[in-house]
Amino acid sequence: MAADPIHQFRIVELFPVAHVGNAEIAFTNSALFMFAAVIIITAFLVLGTAKRSLVPSRLQSAAEISYEFVAATVRSTAGHEGMRFFPFVFTLFMFILTVNFIGLVPFTFTVTSHIIVTAALAITVFLTVLLYGLFRHGFHFFNLFVPKGVPIAILPLIVFIEVLSFVSRPISHSVRLFANMLAGHITLQVFAGFIILMGSAMGAIGWVGGILPFGMIVILMALETLVAFLQAYVFAILTCIYLNDAIHPGH
């Protein structure tokens, strides 16, 4: 049934690609929208700036703003050394932002509404932080879990809490994005379902009454647009903060 709010999250296999053991690898609607995002982002940045104008056009200006926005975020949270991770953070931010925005278009699919995707991204960040931290600082990296100036009596407890919070980072990092996208789209679908429900149940009066949930959808769309941007930004800035720990574990 069309009003089912979960229907929109269904993975549809477009064509199978391979079988690895028991697992089936197929090209799905999710993959389609991932590549759509890749193409849109690349076109936006490369074609938008193709003229290399000194005085930028609107599109070039937008591309430059996205560049400078992410660069400023990285520089302010992870310092100048953090700029080596700028392409990584930029890719994360633009990918999440674009799939979030694509998901707002009716009849599309929201890639980030699947926990496996956000978890994979969060674990990539987690492993990057862990490996770079160990590679860069060796065992000094674990100073991250030992704050300075803590009395020795409660130090084990503090270290335990620090380790726990570090390990739970990928969980909160991924669930935050996933849950926001999921909940937002379910809410939109539920309100849209009300319109159909009222229209089919009460005829003409129902369609008039449908104005109310429709108004809600308009408001929610604005909210979800904000959330789509905000969650991409939050994901990116948390990545920067975690990377900062890998670069400067001393404090």
């Binding site: 999710s30 990584f88 990539t124």
Partner: peptide, 17 residues
Amino acid sequence: SFPSQLTWLVIAFVLLY
């Protein structure tokens, strides 16, 4: 659906990177 999603996510993300 996890293997499919992960595979294409890795390909798409690395390509985009």
